[in-house]
Design a protein around this nucleic acid. Structure first.
Lengths: 135, 135
DNA sequence: CTGGGTGCAAAGTATTTGCATGAAC
DNA sequence: GTTCATGCAAATACTTTGCACCCAG
């Protein structure tokens, strides 16, 4: 449980019940797509609309409160912004796990070989999670 | 210029003029989204339909002839399959460049710290290309 | 020939927008 | 009280499907 009301305000967003719940849900469940989020929020707000979800995801993404993660062959999922990290995505059960990896070498390699200025990295590792390897 | 007819057949795809042109266009232009591809192909085939593009992108992706690349804040782009590589994406001019980076360290780190079996990596580096840095 | 591809139109899905009402601050 | 969010409905955008006709092999 986190204090979403406060965090939302710090991001210059009015802390409506819907927003608090979106933030709380993303915090609890980790990574969710729009559909999942809608299903979960419906339990709390019987009349919430997809438009509300979309509008909020949009402003929250724009101001950096949350981030979109694009995964091959998946719908986009959203997560609360936090330090740079990578994602382990199981191609079997579709679970998504965070992992913090050191990308110093690849980044230095870019520096040496091109004049591109790296500001952000998104690394998705797809494969089999431990459970699915055993099946 | 490459021999797309032959390459398509090797992938068990009938080499229709539309397919040959899709392959050739992706080879020439590097990374393209559906819209770009459609615009370019319209010049060659005045009656080609989006449905044809979508259907072909679909079968070609499924059989591994081409690959979808999902880039934050971009529409998906497609490229001819080739060895594993990463992408440098300029947040200013939206150019996309390939670069081959050594991901041995991050991969070993996954091995040591989890039992996840990595089969595929997708690394997107976003930032400023050399041209946009000078503006 | 024959299977599969093409292009059109229609359907399906996803996302955005306009607007009246209502809630946050 | 003012500003901005919500929820509905409609509009738009994106993608898939069905089908008659046609072409690559």
């Amino acid at each position: 449980m986190i204090n979403c009301t406060e965090i939302l305000r710090q991001h210059h967003l009015k802390a409506t019940p819907q927003r608090v719940e979106i933030a709380q849900t993303l915090h609890t469940n980790g990574h969710m797509n729009i559909e999942n989020l809608y299903e979960v929020l419906l339990k709390k707000f019987r009349t919430i609309s997809l438009a509300t979800i979309y509008k909020n995801i949009h402003v929250m993404t724009k101001n950096g409160f949350i981030q979109e993660v694009k995964i091959p062959a998946h719908k986009s999922v959203y997560e609360l912004s936090k330090g740079t990290h990578s994602h382990l995505v199981c191609t079997q059960c579709h679970s998504i796990e965070d992992i913090t990896l050191d990308l110093t070498y690849p980044k230095e390699s870019v520096l040496k070989r091109s004049s591109f200025l790296v500001e952000k990295t998104d690394l998705i590792l797809s494969g089999l999670c431990s459970k699915c390897q055993k099946l």
